[in-house]
Design a protein around this nucleic acid. Structure first.
Lengths: 269, 269
DNA sequence: CGTTCTTTTGACGAGAGTCAAGACTGGTGG
DNA sequence: CCACCAGTCTTGACTCTCGTCAAAAGAACG
């Protein structure tokens, strides 16, 4: 357990409280869970397919992708996890990993052993309900990804992904204005959207050319939220983030264009 | 509650027992849940987007699709549910429907009110765990669909879908040999695979032309399981069906081809 | 027995993939 | 401090899968 930080799991509790009511006892049970911090290097699989895992992973810093794979090696990212996300809470219910987990950037995680998690869920029905709800929301995002990949063209897909990430970073309070950290490469984005890296590059250029987004080294800035939402056909309902999500673009009139900025060439997306 | 059948929820219990251990008390609690049968006509949405639902739906007979939708009206099916599936157990955890549910054929469902389901989960931790696990497996299927739509071509996608359905019908004991009921139209299949109906038609013809599958009025027969698995790049692990799933093609040497049968034109797929 | 829904076909176009090469960046080590 | 190297991003030319549009022919159903 991390002794340096008195309550390393406070962000996890905050997440649970965003959708589930927990009493004082349950809150203490969550905060009292043991956790072990770990640093994961970029491109490292820290959970392999079929592996039987014994702990859930909470993202403190960085970016994690859940990977599915083709026989001929084509990879598809089925979910991305940003700081304050629990990557594989579902492994508590089904320990055999049916997708690999890879760090897309240098990432800090907290490992929380299954045993105490299961104990907490068994002892407190409200915690069991909260964990279940967390998994269901995760699945709702997954369903939206099926729609994204199945029924939208490249431009819409990318816009939709960026909208989703904007809302999710907003919810964790880690976003300043309409700019958020996103240390993934274009190849990663290609795997999220079911496209090729080349096509992602061209699509990203198109969105930049329209002054809808700006791409920095390891971050995205949204210049025109309303237009991005329109392009991506985005409706945040499925994220179940509560009323805060509706305020993403507030105070940012889409007419007010900042001066055109030269796109950051070579920058990671 | 259906008074005609003493234990209408036996199939639901069987499903839960396939992945979770439940004691005698918990089993009785499941079987004792109230349920209300209902007939749903083809193409009828029995749960609309955003609707706050008050009961879960168990499929007794027929076929149900979970629909996502584009702004420009393009639909994408994110999940199909066959008899013995619980369509929206997740609604117990999150009552606001974030996808519509539509019957793809005349369907009989059992409605089970949320209240007693929630009670059972609260009272018996093992039941809460079983429900959670059920949802997680559902999500695993969803993740595989993302891979299917994102990283496989039309031919593979269709083969993969048919393999999945074959395994799932197998698990419910409703499949005779390698033939199973599948009363969906080609337009429905298009919405499952993220393709157009025209392309589904051509792809299906190709698979028939290779003697891999046979299409009947409301059923599919798999003529060459091994080849279908190879084409679809299928690995049943994600379905979490237990050892039985591995025996799908058992006793069915792929070399033994039955006589070529004229495809059933006009037949629903 | 005709209406409606599905399936089937053909011709054509467009979005995305493939291949290959070059440019820029950041990090490493001499 | 500079040269080099690996990883990313960028571009162009060409290909191909899949979408679009339109029409006809079978089934299903009342």
């Amino acid at each position: 357990m991390s002794l340096s930080d008195p309550a390393p799991l406070q962000p996890f509790l905050t997440r649970l409280l965003s959708h589930s009511a927990l009493g004082e006892t349950e809150r203490r049970a969550i905060l009292g869970l043991p956790s072990h911090p770990a640093q994961i290097q970029t491109h490292r699989d820290f959970v392999r397919l079929r592996e039987r895992v014994g702990h859930a992973c909470f993202v403190v810093e960085g970016l994690v992708g859940r990977f599915g794979q083709n026989r001929d090696g084509k990879r598809q990212i089925t979910a991305v996890h940003i700081p304050a996300d629990m990557v594989n809470l579902q492994s508590v219910a089904v320990p055999e990993a049916c997708s690999a987990l890879q760090a897309l950037a240098v990432t800090t995680i907290l490992r929380i052993p299954h045993e105490p998690l299961r104990d907490a869920a068994t002892r407190y029905p409200a915690i069991a309900a909260a964990f279940w709800r967390e998994s269901v929301i995760d699945a709702a995002v997954l369903a939206e990804w099926v729609v994204n990949v199945g029924r939208r063209d490249a431009r819409s897909r990318m816009a939709h992904l960026l909208c989703e990430l904007a809302c999710r970073t907003q919810a964790t309070g880690r976003r300043v204005g309409l700019r958020f950290e996103f240390p993934a490469t274009q190849a990663h984005v290609a795997d999220m959207l079911g496209l090729t890296p080349v096509h992602v590059n061209r699509t990203a250029q198109a969105l930049r050319g329209e002054n809808v987004i700006r791409i920095e080294a390891h971050a995205i800035e949204i210049l025109d939220w309303n237009r991005l939402v329109a392009i991506g056909d985005f409706d945040p309902g499925y994220l179940h983030l509560g009323p805060a999500a509706a305020e993403v673009g507030a105070g940012r009139p889409s007419a007010a264009q900042p001066p055109r900025i030269r796109p950051a060439f070579q920058a990671n997306m």
